[in-house]
Simulated assay, not measured.
Amino acid sequence: MDLRAIFMGLAFAVMWSSAFTSARIIVTAAPPLGSLALRFLISGLLAVAMARMLGQSWRLNRAQWRATIIFGICQNALYLGLNFVAMQTVEASLASIIASTMPLVVALASWLWLGERLRPMGYAGLLAGVLGVTIIMGARLQGGADPWGVMLCVLGVLSLAAATMSVRGAVSGGNIMMIVGLQMLVGSALLWPFALALETPEVTWSWTLVVAFGYTVLIPGVAATLVWVLLVERIGAIQAATFHFLNPFFGVAVAAVLLGEPMGRYDVIGVVIVTLGILAVQRSRAALR
């Protein structure tokens, strides 16, 4: 892995993790589902336009269309929809920690239900991940974290893990940026009816809201996706996935710096344990390929 790939991986991890902080700013001032539906509409159109500029085709094969629809439903509408609603009462740092456990959830489910083998280091990583999350969740719930919001975050990461497992390898064959853009448009189409039926269009306008929304559209929505695609093309999906182990740390750090969210002793301990667990699982799975 060369220096450029490392820089790209770090940039992706920071951009992905920072999305929870910008989302927290948005949902405290605007309806969560309507904001997310609008974000997906704009990001999706930008991603599709970028895909066309890269020469990618609208014509997807059956597996790619399946991945587009499943991820549009499970990742964009359910995972992010549930997280946006949850972050009205749940801090961005906690939401990012829960979301970052997705590789652990996928590895655990693959082991239990698909019979996927892990090296001893991988099993140790799964145990470490469970321990780290337990430490963080216990401390946060005792500190007054909203149980309903936490449950929505957990349901969201389970939805994302299910989608990831169901479409493994389905996006191979090119047109990745086009698939991502169409996924966003599917998510937007699914969210709009719920936003219009359940939410009132009350917005507390401020420059921070405008900046946060613009950042969410352009950076996590488009730039992070483009960097991820380029990183996978450069070093492969397995090596690229190892950068996910940085997400718990960056998620907590960005929320602490920009939102002033407290970082307690148990948060630090739990984040370190979860981070090491994700790294161990990723390295174990890579070693078996």
Score class of each variant (00 low, 15 high):
236 G>Y: 05
189 A>S: 08
235 I>D: 09
184 M>Y: 03
189 A>G: 11
237 A>I: 09
188 S>R: 00
221 G>I: 04
193 P>M: 00
195 A>F: 13
196 L>T: 11
190 L>M: 05
222 V>Q: 11
237 A>H: 07
234 R>V: 11
198 L>C: 09
221 G>L: 03
201 P>M: 08
212 A>M: 02
184 M>S: 14
222 V>L: 10
229 V>W: 01
233 E>R: 15
224 A>H: 01
190 L>V: 14
185 L>C: 09
229 V>E: 10
198 L>M: 13
212 A>G: 03
230 L>T: 07
211 V>N: 03
236 G>R: 04
215 Y>T: 02
219 I>T: 10
219 I>E: 07
188 S>I: 06
222 V>D: 07
193 P>Y: 00
209 L>D: 15
224 A>L: 02
222 V>H: 04
199 E>K: 05
185 L>P: 00
202 E>Y: 03
192 W>Y: 14
233 E>K: 13
212 A>W: 01
220 P>H: 12
203 V>A: 04
205 W>N: 05
211 V>Y: 15
189 A>Y: 08
236 G>D: 05
225 T>R: 02
206 S>A: 14
217 V>L: 12
203 V>N: 02
221 G>Q: 03
232 V>G: 08
220 P>C: 07
231 L>D: 01
229 V>L: 11
226 L>E: 05
189 A>H: 02
212 A>V: 08
227 V>P: 15
186 V>W: 05
210 V>L: 10
196 L>Y: 07
210 V>Y: 13
200 T>L: 14
232 V>A: 10
214 G>M: 07
199 E>L: 04
217 V>P: 00
228 W>P: 02
225 T>D: 00
199 E>M: 11
206 S>L: 09
234 R>C: 05
194 F>M: 10
217 V>F: 02
184 M>P: 01
214 G>R: 08
190 L>T: 05
202 E>G: 14
192 W>N: 02
239 Q>H: 12
198 L>F: 15
224 A>V: 06
211 V>Q: 08
234 R>W: 04
214 G>I: 02
231 L>P: 00
213 F>S: 03
197 A>I: 13
195 A>E: 08
231 L>T: 03
212 A>R: 04
234 R>E: 09
236 G>Q: 13
222 V>A: 11
189 A>C: 08
209 L>C: 07
221 G>C: 04
208 T>I: 14
225 T>Y: 10
189 A>I: 01
205 W>F: 15
220 P>W: 13
